[in-house]
Amino acid sequence: MKSYDGRVNAVDGISLEIDKGEFLTLLGPSGSGKTTTLMMIAGFEEPSSGVIELGGEDLTRRKPYERNIGVVFQNYALFPHMTVERNVAFPLRMRAFPRSQQAERVREILDLVGLRRFADKHPRELSGGQQQRVALARGLVFNPDVLLLDEPLGALDKNLREQMQVELKRIHREVGITMVYVTHDQTEAMTMSDRIAVFSHGTLEQTAPPLEVYHRPRSRFVGEFIGDSNFFTGRVDSGAPGHVELDGVGPIEADADACRRLAGAPVDVLVRPERLQLVGDSELLANRLAVKIGVIVNYGDSVLIIGDAGRQRIRIRIAGAQPDAVREGATVMVAWKAGDEHLIARS
């Protein structure tokens, strides 16, 4: 396989470098520019300025059919008048693959997606999940440098979607091809990606591995978009090291390094709901809040408590069954360790 790394600079000041073999997810709400970026990589949209490079080669002015890039569309976009086999063979025919190897290659790729038995069927005879696999096979069959996937699981129901996530990861591991995946579903992004690029209003907010994006979001937008969150506003106390003065709450202890870096600055403070613990009076945790419980959502394996600490809305996620003390209208003590929060400088 060719060695390359993709490099994308787009009209809205987007700069992305994609490693070979990487699974990168472009994540963001609709209209945030992620699909536009994908379509520029595919060649269906031309950037008005900036370049798109693949392995050091400038692709910017190349037509889609002159790029070696596969695309899987959300609505599958299978050719309705062709059988599964003909659909998958189509890129080989168009790209003048040696005729003698075409059938073999099609069989190989249909085996990979588990659709060998359906080779002679037409797309309309297949289920949504099977059609998606055909689209995947068609995108992969010609050994593209990159496979682009535009919300490919969006039309599937929840169970099938989870199944296909696992399947897609397996295929990615087996084929080792670079994949760029567009979705607005943060769970999908978290579970599948090597890195996530978070989009908002046509700009790139953060590009990082899933856990980094989750625990150390670079902006309040990212922290709120990915996962459940509690956000406070406050100011890093320059007089008392390792302390932050939270608006409406008072001083808290926080990570010392972060405080030193942001000394005196106004900050957004993120505390994930699962970092909060219910505590008795005796326990010693630095940061505590009295929370009046409003709503309790019981998931069976965990409980989500939504309540208020003064004017601040607080979400708490505790594992296991609902404790006796947790009742609607009751007040509980909630605490977290210094360092379980994340500070984001507010501009």
Binding site: F44, Y65, A77
Partner: peptide, 9 residues
């Protein structure tokens, strides 16, 4: 689009 990304002009 699918045809074009498959290599068809």
């Amino acid at each position: 689009k699918a045809a074009m990304s498959s290599g068809a002009g």
